[in-house]
């Protein structure tokens, strides 16, 4: 922590809470990626990190830098908007790929996969 001025207790408290909450949510999402059993269940877990998780960290960054530089620092919003708009695209493509590969592999693309989804 070099080169950082003291932002004050209130700002530090808000930043600390937001950043820890965001990181914890991302961690739980990644844990879900490990723990859940099938691919279709695992798709749900990382969204925690990419929505509320990154939202909290970005908000913390906005609060901290706005206080440090004594002016509104808002360019984190760009990342937030970008992530919100792009995540559906990748996840829809992935879901479609998985369902199509299930169909080709003999399943009906709707249920558990016939070939090895051991988690």
């Amino acid at each position: 922590m070099t080169g950082v001025n003291d932002p004050g207790l209130a700002v530090a408290l808000i930043t600390a809470m937001l950043v820890v909450a965001g990181a914890a949510l991302t961690l739980v999402g990644a844990l879900g990626l490990l723990r859940l059993k099938t691919f279709y269940e695992r798709v749900h877990a990382p969204t925690m990190g990419s929505t509320l998780g990154s939202g909290c960290v970005l908000l913390a960054s906005i609060v901290l830098f706005s206080a440090l530089e004594s002016r509104p620092v808002l360019h984190e919003i760009a990342i937030g908007v970008f992530v919100t708009l792009t995540t559906p695209v990748t996840f829809m493509l992935l879901m479609r790929a998985a369902m199509q590969r299930d169909r080709i592999g003999g399943g009906d693309g709707r249920g558990e996969t016939p070939n090895g989804d051991d988690g």
């Binding site: 922590m1 700002v11 408290l13 600390a16 809470m17 950043v19 820890v20 990181a23 960290v57 901290l64």
Partner: peptide
């Protein structure tokens, strides 16, 4: 105090 809180929480995160 606030610096410790900040650096600790950032390290944890």
């Amino acid at each position: 105090m606030s610096m410790m809180l900040l650096s600790g929480s950032l390290l944890l995160a």
